[in-house]
Design a protein around this nucleic acid. Sequence first.
DNA 1: CTCGTAAGCGTGCGACGTACGCTTACGAAG
DNA 2: CTTCGTAAGCGTACGTCGCACGCTTACGAG
Lengths: 203, 203
Amino acid sequence: MPRPRSLTNPQIAAAALRVLDRDGLDGLTMRAVATELGMGTMSVYRYVADRAQLEALVVDHVLAGVDTTVPAAEPRGRQVAVLAERVRTVVGAHTAVVPLILAHRHTSPASMRWGDAVLGVLADAGLGPARRVVAFRALLAYVFGALQVEHFSPLAGPGTAALAELDPADHPHLASTAREAQGIGPDEEFRGGLEILLRGLEL
Amino acid sequence: MPRPRSLTNPQIAAAALRVLDRDGLDGLTMRAVATELGMGTMSVYRYVADRAQLEALVVDHVLAGVDTTVPAAEPRGRQVAVLAERVRTVVGAHTAVVPLILAHRHTSPASMRWGDAVLGVLADAGLGPARRVVAFRALLAYVFGALQVEHFSPLAGPGTAALAELDPADHPHLASTAREAQGIGPDEEFRGGLEILLRGLEL
DNA sequence: CTCGTAAGCGTGCGACGTACGCTTACGAAG
DNA sequence: CTTCGTAAGCGTACGTCGCACGCTTACGAG
């Protein structure tokens, strides 16, 4: 009966994501999102309760881009690996959301769908309930931890270079290993770590 | 010759940590820290360049509490596990710093000492440079990822309870596994995940 | 055409980080 | 004991943030 809504949640999330990609996390303000939407600042509050909910919307929007269908022909280990790598690919296209993801992951429906898919594979693999919980949370910790580590201190970045220049007397192993590290790409790093975890899971 | 400094870095970090423990991350403001130190707000800027540096100071102060000596009598796997568990114990006593740690970990001397110790064990275990890099970063991702996951959505918390109430038709595996999950304590969870990773490392 | 409802927004408030420049305490030099 | 250069310490002020509040306005059912 009254005036209809002009915006959907995905439209708001997409606008916020555009701001995030363009101006970074610091640039993500209610005012900037409103401008991106062509509205006044306070109009955004017709659609979200507060900034936290806006962030949650963005996180869910990004994670909704993850394909959660399980590749049936693959062995269990590969199925889990594929699901994990899809998250990384999607998030990698919007690196500024990384810090927001862990804060809001647990309220995101898309994240739950992904979790359900992963747990399904673990169940099919024959893991009992208790082992499934631990394995799933370990996977969660690794995937989102790796995203953060890669975001804040990429192997190819200046942090590693600085480590390489360290006095070997103070940090013998760190200095020498850092020199080796710059030759390893982010894909290789993520997959390598994932392989270790999956081997430990014995899938 | 001029007026001497009245504060050391550890004193500032300790004051900020007290604020953080008492009022949480939102309560950590330059004004609050200044009050805690019994000074005017702007006086704090004689000791830190900006808020980011204050945060870095806190992170390093917390991580400095981690004992990085390697227990010589233990097997390699246990040595790594002990180093990882010490981080978790120390950080667990100040849960509000968790979000700050990943952002500033790579600028912290204490963190570097810890990294050097871990890499030393990995080298002693006979891992070549490339494998060492991947193993180390995987460990980093797991340890700090697990801290964040535990902080934002603890297994015993309301998030898991909410998952357990989910419609099993939508999320069959998530719903049933969540019911199992509440019986698992944080220690068991962290160690279980760590065991998986270490088994994959074949130390 | 009327009118109830909610969309949209202008203004304003309190809190934040911090730039700037003044005042003041210290301790070495005389 | 006095002087004085230096940096400690701080008061004020600015721009920006999230957001509370209440007004205006567009819509669509009757």
